[in-house]
């Protein structure tokens, strides 16, 4: 992680999941795994975020909110989908109220599979997104 100039801030969005991935994301922030040693912080508004962490299969009521949160996040941004449900609906295929994996509505950069993925895997996914973000910024210059 040599070329990293600024710590990235993440915003977490739950589109109707079971909370398994959400508590593993929070566990990644606590002292055992300590995402914060990289300067990664959980922010309260998508307008301050660089990376969106999205969990859950998208339910009908949350589809609109997902698109809105994506639009509110300023460029350049990365989208990291955590868990099987967001990547491919997981166990919830062919449910009437689940409208589809996250990449049906917003472009996704990193998928972290698992049900739920371990905190180490989530940190790895966020690090990959970080590196991709830095490369994007370099190319734009």
């Amino acid at each position: 992680m040599q070329a990293l100039k600024r710590a990235i801030w993440v915003f977490h969005l739950n589109t109707g999941g079971c909370n398994g991935c959400d508590i593993e994301i929070l566990a990644a922030l606590t002292p055992r795994y300590d995402l914060e040693r990289f300067g990664i912080k959980l922010v309260g508004s998508p307008r301050h975020a660089d990376v969106l962490l999205i969990t859950g299969p998208v339910t009908r009521k949350m589809e609109e909110r997902l698109k809105r949160v994506y639009a509110q996040t300023p460029d350049p941004k990365m989208v990291v989908v955590v868990g099987n449900c967001g990547s491919s609906k997981g166990v919830f295929h062919h449910h009437y109220n689940v409208v589809g994996p996250v990449d049906k509505f917003v472009p996704v950069d990193v998928y972290v599979p698992g049900c739920p993925p371990r905190p180490e895997a989530i940190i790895y996914g966020v690090a990959k997104a970080w590196i991709k973000l830095e490369k994007l910024k370099e190319e734009k210059k």
Binding site: N14, G44, K61
Partner: peptide, 11 residues
């Protein structure tokens, strides 16, 4: 509501 920045599910 319903989007919450830190914890759990939407309501």
């Amino acid at each position: 509501g319903p989007v919450h920045p830190a914890f759990k599910e939407p309501i």
